[in-house]
Computed example of a mutant assay.
Amino acid sequence: MNTQPHDHIVKSHDEEQRSVTAEILRMGGIAVAQLEAALDVVERRDDRAAERVIANDEAIDTLEAKIGHDVMQLALRGPMARDLRVILAALRIAGDLERIGDYAANAAKRSKVLNTLPPVPHVTGLRPLGQLAVCQLRDALAAYRDNDADLALKVRESDAELDATYTALFRELLTYMMEDPRHITPCTHLLFMAKNLERTGDHATNIAENVWFLVKGEEPLPPRDKRDETSTSGAA
């Protein structure tokens, strides 16, 4: 009989942790959908769909605020070491997802500007870069859902491919701008979009590293490759 109140507290605490995890996964699902929709509106030159992407960013912001509140409630219960990792990881991951949502909304805003300009063929170059970012984010969320440290490492390693793809697109757009000054304005917007997708990969990597921290604690991560060479290419 004396253990019942304690058992109830433990059960309540576990339920609250599961609720926070579910909220983060929901937030992640919205972020993935926003990224995919943003890529779509850029290619289709669809202003109305772009407006929907911009408006939907509010849902991600609202979820981040709720997660922050719920995590604070967990923290006030005097958590143990594992619980502290859960709390820290949840706050960090929610922050990364909020930034990814911002990048998707920013791409949608820039697409509306592009729609006022003559089409440029290099818009299609965003699709493979965006698909890599979306895949990386999906895998990072799956690693978080399943507490899968091995998948988290794969996500972290896959960022090198995204960096290399971004660098190739960066150089291609820069060349296109130099060949014809009329393309400078649209290509500048594409460069910003591409950079946001590259940063999305960085935030997905952050999520993966927090999964590692959640599962492994202070065990150090292995070194990884980075291939964003735009700052040292000589063209930047």
Rank of each mutant, 00 (worst) to 15 (best):
A149T: 06
D146S: 14
D83Y: 01
H122F: 12
I87Q: 03
G68I: 07
A142E: 14
G68K: 07
E64I: 11
R92E: 11
L84K: 09
R145H: 09
H69K: 15
E157P: 05
D159L: 15
D146H: 11
E157M: 08
D163Q: 14
Y144Q: 12
Q131I: 13
L97N: 04
S111Q: 09
R110W: 13
E64R: 07
S111P: 02
A107C: 13
P79K: 00
D150P: 05
V134L: 08
V155H: 01
L88C: 11
S111L: 11
M72L: 11
A140Q: 04
R156Q: 07
L132P: 00
I87W: 01
A143P: 01
A140C: 12
A164E: 10
L76E: 05
T116P: 05
K154M: 14
V120Y: 13
S111K: 03
Y103K: 09
I100T: 03
A140L: 10
I60C: 04
D148M: 15
V134M: 01
Y144C: 13
D150C: 10
G95N: 08
I60A: 05
K109S: 06
A81Q: 01
L84T: 12
A108W: 02
K109M: 09
L88Y: 13
G125V: 07
V113Y: 14
D61T: 11
L63V: 02
A94L: 08
M80Q: 07
E157H: 12
A94R: 04
P128G: 05
A140F: 08
L153C: 04
S158W: 01
I93F: 07
A90P: 01
P79I: 02
R99S: 00
P121H: 08
A75V: 11
